[in-house]
Amino acid sequence: MLNTEWGLMVWTLITFGLAVFVLWKYAFGPLQRVIDERRARIQESMDSAEETRAEAQRLLDEYKQTLAQVRGEAEAILERSRASGEAAKAEILAASRDQAERLVTRAHEQIERETRAAVQDLKAQVADLTLLATEKVAASSLSEADQRRLIDEALADLDFDKLTTESNG
């Protein structure tokens, strides 16, 4: 009775040892290796995906930055052109206003000058005509000197200044 059991235990140890040995040598190693390899590969692909994502993110940031820069530049250019246009407009306006003013001034001056000349002319003609008329009316009742004095008095009564102002206005 006891014999059989010892034998069975020995058989158990033999078969069990053989099974463990074969599994260890042939199954566990390759299985572990293939699982580790797969894990490494998954890790790798995850890493590379992460890298790609980071790269894409970087590119996106770069594009965004460039875009912002370009937009800023365009705005600056626009601003600058607007400013220069404004300046040109102001300049032209100022120049034209200047010129107009100058023209007006010149016209005024000319008018005044011509008025003054006309007045002078008128004075002289009036004096001459008066002299002539007086000469005709009074012939030689009066001396030349008296005539001149009388004319001057009459001329003094006439207000030529008023004429000048009226033509001016």
């Binding site: 014999n3 059989t4 010892w6 034998g7 069975l8 058989w11």
Partner: peptide
């Protein structure tokens, strides 16, 4: 004492 006969269990 070890009987190595093959039986059902073996």
């Amino acid at each position: 004492p070890v009987d190595l006969s093959i039986n059902k269990a073996v």
